[in-house]
C-alpha cells in the first residue's frame, strides 16, 4: 500500500503522538509519588483546634523559620491514642518514642539554595498563599512528587510541564524568584540566594 499524504498532514500525524508522549507520558515517567508519613489535615487543626499558622510554623527571633513544630508540640494535644487511625499512628510511631515526623516538604528547594522566610514575611509582608497556594487550608497532606533523576520536588518546576502558570504559586524555579524580586525593584546577587 502506498499511502501518500500531504506534507502538513503527515507532519501533524507525527507531531501529535510525540507531543502526547512529551506532555502526558513524560511527567509520569519523570516523577514518582512518595506518600507522607502521616495524614495531616490543616483544615481540621484550624477548625477543631483553632490553631493559627504561626502556632506551628513560626519565624524565630534568630530569623530562622521553624518549618514544622517538633513532635513535642503535637504531644500537647496528642498524648494519647484514640480518635482516628491518624492520631494512633502519630502517638505510637512518634510521640511515645519521641521521634520527629519525617514530613516531606513539597516546597523544598535543592541544597544549594538559601531561602529565608524572614525578609518575605517580616519585610515584604507576603501572604503564605502567594508562594504556597491554599496548602494552609488543605484537608490532607499533599503526596510528594519526587523527580526520579534529581530527587527534587515537583513543586520547584511546577505542575505544568511547559511551565504555564495558572496560579502565582505554580513553580518556584530561579526565574520565579527573580521575576518577583524584579517586580519589587530588587536585583539580587548570586550569594543572596545560593549557599
Amino acid at each position: 500500500m502506498n499511502l501518500k499524504l500531504p506534507a502538513p498532514v503527515s507532519f501533524a500525524a507525527g507531531l501529535a503522538p510525540a507531543l502526547a508522549a512529551g506532555w502526558l507520558l513524560f511527567p509520569r515517567l519523570l516523577y514518582e509519588e512518595v506518600p507522607q508519613p502521616l495524614p495531616f489535615s490543616h483544615e481540621a487543626h484550624a477548625e477543631a483546634a483553632g490553631t493559627t499558622c504561626d502556632g506551628c510554623h513560626a519565624l524565630g527571633p534568630d530569623g530562622r523559620f521553624a518549618g514544622v513544630p517538633r513532635v513535642e508540640a503535637c504531644a500537647g494535644c496528642h498524648a494519647e491514642k484514640g480518635g482516628s487511625p491518624g492520631v494512633d499512628a502519630l502517638v505510637e510511631g512518634y510521640v511515645t518514642p519521641g521521634r520527629e515526623v519525617p514530613w516531606l516538604f513539597a516546597a523544598r528547594q535543592p541544597d544549594n539554595v538559601f531561602f529565608p522566610h524572614a525578609p518575605h514575611l517580616a519585610l515584604a509582608k507576603l501572604e503564605c498563599a502567594r508562594c504556597h497556594g491554599p496548602q494552609g487550608k488543605s484537608a490532607e497532606a499533599r503526596p510528594f512528587a519526587r523527580n526520579r533523576i534529581s530527587g527534587e520536588s515537583r513543586d520547584v518546576w511546577g505542575p505544568s510541564i511547559v511551565r504555564r502558570k495558572a496560579n502565582a504559586w505554580d513553580g518556584m524555579k530561579m526565574a520565579d524568584c527573580i521575576r518577583c524580586h524584579r517586580e519589587a525593584g530588587r536585583e539580587s546577587a548570586c550569594l543572596d540566594c545560593h549557599k
Binding site: 519565624l59 524565630g60 527571633p61 534568630d62 530569623g63 530562622r64 538559601f114 529565608p116 524572614a118 525578609p119 517580616a122 519585610l123 550569594l191 543572596d192 549557599k195
Partner: peptide, 21 residues
C-alpha cells in the same frame, strides 16, 4: 573562601525578622 557568606545570610535573616535591612 566566601568570607563565610552563610554567616552573612543568617545575620541578614535575623535582622529581617526584627524588621531591619
Amino acid at each position: 573562601c566566601s568570607f563565610c557568606a552563610g554567616r552573612l545570610q543568617a545575620a541578614k535573616a535575623k535582622a529581617a525578622a526584627a524588621g531591619s535591612r
